[in-house]
Write a protein that binds this DNA or RNA. Sequence first.
DNA 1: GAAAGTGTTGAAAG
DNA 2: TCTTTCAACACTTT
Length: 273
Amino acid sequence: MPELPEVQAVVDSIKPLFLSRKIIEIKNPNSYKSVFATHSLEKLNGLVINKRIKNVFRKGKYILIELESGYLAVHLRMTGNFKTSSDNESDAKHISVELILDNKKSVYYKDYRKFGRIYYFNDLNYLENKLGCEPLSKDFDYQFLKHGLSKSKSMIKSKLLDQSFIAGLGNIYVDESLWLAKIHPEKKSDTISGIKIRRLSDAIPMILKKAIEHNGTTIINFSFGNDSIGSYKEKLNVFGKTGEVCIRCKKSKIVKIFVSQRGTHFCPRCQKK
DNA sequence: GAAAGTGTTGAAAG
DNA sequence: TCTTTCAACACTTT
């Protein structure tokens, strides 16, 4: 799915469509009801209709549409996406939400695997409690990581995927960060040396920033806003590189294993346990 | 043509 | 309380 950089790219692409507009109606074109996570379609309409949109931003992997009062939130999960048109037949059956704006234009939420969800929150308390540190904020530093990891017996990969610890990392950027920091993905969090934690605390924001500059990574079936393509894929060093020679040591081949059921790519020579 | 695989997360189980 | 496993779903690849 869209991880932090991809969600940011989506936010950047939809923000101009929403800013200062009002939603005049929400529809459910394919009748998939589960997309509405917190309120029924009817209740949601009651809560958002005719409220001016003040801002659109990202928190973890959530997209937040801030209204005069309250927030409409969207989580894309694996295959969620926004479009400004629904022109073909195959789109139609996957469009679970249509937001009709006061300029008569619509923004469509399309999600063929139907994992994505739309929420309404009165305030940000719920998300702030649930989500951990923003990896691009000042709070994310060596001390934060060192302290957090020292208390965890989980494997480092699982820990970095834990959204209540760090909000926004997913499978791709965790693999990339661990490769850059030369840490084995199955290494127990509380046994990682200070020097490696230091490298990791540098690697994570660096990789995320670079990925944001490239509008994220488009793989398999995720792209953002109207199927625009993120170009960070060309910058990946390990993710999806199974069998290729590691570009750093130029000796070992990238190996793929499963760590807590997630496909995990690493260089066995650079990333030793 | 059947089976496995796919970027996430929450609930359930351990 | 913390950590791991599995299901939600549809489409592509093997």
